[in-house]
Amino acid sequence: MTAVRTLRGPLLLTVTLLVAWQLLHQWAGDTALTAPLPTLGHLWEMIGQKRFVPHVTETGLAFLQALAISWIGGVGIGVLLGGHKLSGEVAEPILVGIYSLPKITLYPVILLLFGLGMSAKVAFGALHGIIPVALFTMNAVRNVNRTYPRAGRSMRLSPAQTAWHILIPATLPEVFTGLRIGFSLTLLGTMLGELFASQRGLGFLLMTAIDLNDVQTILAIAVLISLFAVAANSILLAIDKRLHRGAAA
């Protein structure tokens, strides 16, 4: 029963979206929007093709590298800034300021600094993801209840034990929320990076399809990326909710 309950929302949504897509197709015609079924068929066909694989690997690799930088770098920066009060106070408005800038305008600068190719995409993805991760981690570290480390000290825990048994469990839920948001933004950044000036990857395929006005391919790639994004996000969100519930209990 609970399974039906949890699945009802997403299922209803999927059906709604598919119906809306079909209706929009009827209204706009084949040149603007291909129907859902042929598009999905086209996607299936594309995945089977050999020339498609290197593009997916390219995008996947760029995304994974960017994700590693934003997660590890973001948590590192966050722990440092959260642990040291003054540097946290100095850095927070700067980070929030950078976070709220439209970073897309900086893309040409990234291209100039990193050159065309993989490193520019990775840098742009990491630039999007690293700051939210750092901000969430910083707040998590800052908000650790003071009595916890004190309790640890009264039990004479070693620093490693304090970190493992106290600090990590206390900060994990908030940090994980940061990681989840960082994941989405890194994906957005990497995809944006691929759309402009790239020679391989899904973004490149997308741009080629846009130039050729190949609607079916555009939609197929959009669906593929969306499916990946939604699936990954749902998993992360489920873990996130579980962690927060555990923390509240």
Binding site: R8, L12, A32, L219, A222, I225, S226, N233
Partner: peptide, 26 residues
């Protein structure tokens, strides 16, 4: 809200710019 929650949660991981050509056609 329950219906749209998964959509809202995943919204910012969608590649919006992929839909740009469609918007031009429309």
């Amino acid at each position: 809200r329950r219906t749209f929650d998964p959509f809202l949660a995943a919204y910012y991981s969608l590649p919006h710019f992929a839909f740009y050509p469609l918007l031009i056609v429309i």
